[in-house]
Design a protein around this nucleic acid. Structure first.
Lengths: 239, 239
DNA sequence: CAATAGTTGATTGTTGACAATCTAACGACG
DNA sequence: CGTCGTTAGATTGTCAACAATCAACTATTG
């Protein structure tokens, strides 16, 4: 959630974040949620996690609070905390929001696309295709998030970067659940080929249109998986 | 930050929020910041606030953490917490983000504008003009935020509502500082007259253009005030 | 048998004390 | 005179115990 380096893509010095216990816990908990170790809907009790991480409840509470703000957990006072449940409505909101934000990001960054930007985008695209070809689900998810993240970094718009970070966690959760259910490959490559081509081209309106198409495809895929999963769950009665 | 009632404008039942100490502190602290009692840049130490509110540091820490996430405070580990400082760059980001989000909100809500929506919008507009005419700065700020907030409520888009809530605090901070420096009145009425007319009209592209104009005027006003204030401060050497 | 009141175990909310870390002031030294 | 190590005060980070609240279960009652 904190990658606010403005317009410098090479990981230069980067103000070293004095890691406090809370930040550590946040990372580990987020990893646990996204890996499926804590699946959507699972209860999250402070005492057991505090024991598991060998820390007190103080820092753990603050970590939970942060994950609630990121939208990965929900808490009802005096009652309990749970990992958020998946819903098709959320998928629609996430993707429609992505269209809005990413179009804005490209508008902001369009004039700033220098040689370093193009190079970095191609590099991240190579990373993504490599991860997909290698069949590494986790890596391909991160690579895709990184690829799309580039334009937000290039926008130099801190508020926009925050908004993307906020979306990013939820998106990652859905993708992780999707990949876990049934490994997906193939069509994503072509989808990003056209995306990259437009992103590096000279026609901004074409890029804005491409974003809409790209997200439409993504939302369709994710929503389709989710409907299938929810239907399975209803038939199987597992919860 | 938590008004997620979807598409019902009349304050119906509204799930009663079991008020925890933290929530209480958040409200009071936010009020203190926005009222200028804790001006931009002021240090915020946990112990003194805990004593002042007669609570322990635990809930207070969590309240500070939440305000940090809202962008009203900044914390550097083991060192201290401060109210954010005002900057022209932030003003630009806030208003450009508002253009993006509010256009999206109107696109989402355009077909949903029923009689209740129109009535509510006129009602809130009357509130705003009444507050302005009465010369009540605080009330007029809240009324203007409420007026613009309506379209986010009507959008039924929870993620978008969250994004607006996140912006809202920062915007309120700048407006409060602006009003405190020199009471402003007058042009704001006309500005909102055209805004309301377009919002209730039948031409969506015209509304999207009006949003751009409205925000351009607002940003210009706020940024101008801020430049003057920063220049004053530099001459006066007060900080 | 249905509805309600009471009870119990679990979970979060809150507290005050203690530890780790940072910033700034001070003084020794080249 | 400037620089670097030291120290002291302040501030946040962490902890373990205690209190408030809730959800589910049980028993009681009509």
């Amino acid at each position: 959630m904190r990658s606010l380096a403005p317009a410098s893509f090479g990981h230069s010095i980067e103000r070293l974040n004095k890691s406090t216990l809370r930040d550590h816990i946040v990372e580990r908990l987020r990893a646990a949620i996204l890996s499926g170790e804590l699946p959507p809907g699972a209860p999250v009790v402070e005492t057991v996690l505090a024991a598991r991480f060998a820390v007190s409840r103080g820092p753990l509470r603050e970590a939970l609070r942060q994950l609630v703000d990121e939208g990965l957990l929900v808490t009802v006072p005096y009652t309990g905390t749970h990992v958020i449940s998946l819903s098709v409505e959320d998928v629609r909101e996430i993707y429609s929001m992505r269209v809005t934000l990413e179009r804005f990001a490209f508008e902001q960054a369009w004039q700033r696309r220098d040689a370093a930007f193009r190079e970095e985008m191609l590099r991240r695209h190579r990373h993504l295709t490599a991860a997909i070809d290698a069949g590494d689900d986790r890596a391909s998810i991160l690579a895709e998030l990184d690829l799309h993240g580039l334009v937000y970094e290039a926008s130099g718009h801190r508020l926009l970067q925050r908004a993307w970070s906020s979306l990013r966690g939820r998106l990652q959760l859905y993708w992780a659940a999707h990949h876990r259910a049934h490994a997906i490959r193939g069509p994503r490559r072509d989808s990003h080929d056209s995306y990259i081509a437009a992103a590096l081209g000279g026609d901004l309106p074409a890029m804005l249109a491409e974003i809409g198409e790209h997200m439409r495809r993504g939302a369709e895929q994710t929503e389709g998986f989710l409907r299938a999963q929810l239907m399975d769950r209803e038939n199987g009665q597992e919860a």
